[in-house]
């Protein structure tokens, strides 16, 4: 490889790395400046001690878990069924799962608000529980492209028809097949999708704010407008959570490679 290409490559890499790392550094540095003149963790202490932080964060974690369960329940049987019985319908199903990347979230939630208001056939926004459910379902839609792709890729690595026929010949029903055969075999894919979903949901703002739910994203926004240092500490925490989710995806993938090698 000639020198000029190598230099250009390094230059692109270093500049991009700088562009990505400097804001993260700036954010972290700023979050440590709550005490005048010295670096301290005061902002973090104040944030974590804030009961509203605890409440909203807990709410978002619960919602993320609910979204993951909903996503798995909807995507795993669908991807399985398409692979097993109707592979010719895959482009159509894939098209549906990719729509959320094209239709902006704010448009979707606007539709929800108008469609599921108190006077509609399904008055979900009429009660707190209903709105929570609607929010979780909305998040499931946002996570659908990632969840479907992860699980469909996972299913590709196993021989779905043969496994199914083997299980059926032993007398297993559909629920048993899905729960005992398919799910364990695509667990890594499910985990990847789950962590990604978690990362998306935990700091999500638009849906939560417009459905007026006490989630972490809107809290972050509110703090940002009336506190000096806390929002930066919260941002660092958010980044750490995203990083942890990606790390867990890598870990799950690596562990699965390990167990497969032993077989």
């Amino acid at each position: 490889m000639n020198l000029w290409v190598r230099i250009t490559g390094w230059l692109a890499f270093v500049l991009a790395a700088g562009y990505m790392l400097v804001p993260l550094f700036g954010m972290t540095e700023f979050s440590l400046k709550a005490r005048r003149g010295v670096y301290s963790l005061d902002a973090y202490a104040r944030v974590i001690g804030d009961t509203e932080f605890q409440a909203t964060f807990g709410y978002s974690v619960t919602l993320a878990l609910a979204t993951i369960v909903l996503g798995v329940l909807i995507v795993v049987p669908t991807a399985f069924w398409v692979r097993l019985k109707m592979p010719w319908a895959r482009p159509f199903v894939e098209f549906l799962t990719l729509l959320p990347l094209v239709i902006p979230a704010i448009v979707l939630v606007f539709g929800y608000i108008r469609l599921y208001n108190t006077s509609s056939f399904l008055p979900l926004t009429g009660s707190a529980a209903g709105t929570n459910l609607l929010l979780a379902l909305g998040y499931t839609v946002l996570a659908l492209p990632y969840m479907y792709r992860a699980i469909d890729t996972g299913l590709r690595t196993i021989d779905v028809p043969t496994l199914t026929e083997a299980a059926q010949s032993l007398g297993a029903g559909w629920v048993t097949i899905l729960w005992r055969i398919v799910l364990p075999n695509v667990m890594v894919a499910v985990l990847s999708g789950a962590f990604l979903t978690f990362a998306i949901v935990i700091g999500e703002y638009t849906l939560a704010a417009l459905l007026d739910r006490p989630a972490f994203g809107p809290y972050l926004q509110r703090i940002g407008t009336n506190k000096p240092y806390e929002p930066f500490a919260l941002s660092v925490i958010s980044f750490a959570i995203t990083w942890a989710c990606m790390g867990l995806i890598q870990l799950a993938t690596r562990l699965s490679k390990h167990t497969k090698a032993q077989r």
């Binding site: 990505m20 400097v22 804001p23 993260l24 550094f25 700036g26 954010m27 540095e29 700023f30 979050s31 990604l196 990362a199 998306i200 700091g203 999500e204 703002y205 994203g217 972050l220 926004q221 940002g224 929002p231 930066f232 919260l234 941002s235 958010s238 980044f239 995203t242 990083w243 989710c245 990606m246 790390g247 995806i249 890598q250």
Partner: peptide
């Protein structure tokens, strides 16, 4: 791996990262 994290690091925290860096009292 970093790209996986950064591509999903959007929304409010991202705004603060840029305010802390390029804002009136930011790092730069």
């Amino acid at each position: 791996t970093f790209s996986g994290v950064a591509a999903n690091f959007a929304g409010v925290p991202l705004a603060f990262a840029f305010i802390a860096t390029l804002g009136p009292v930011g790092l730069v």
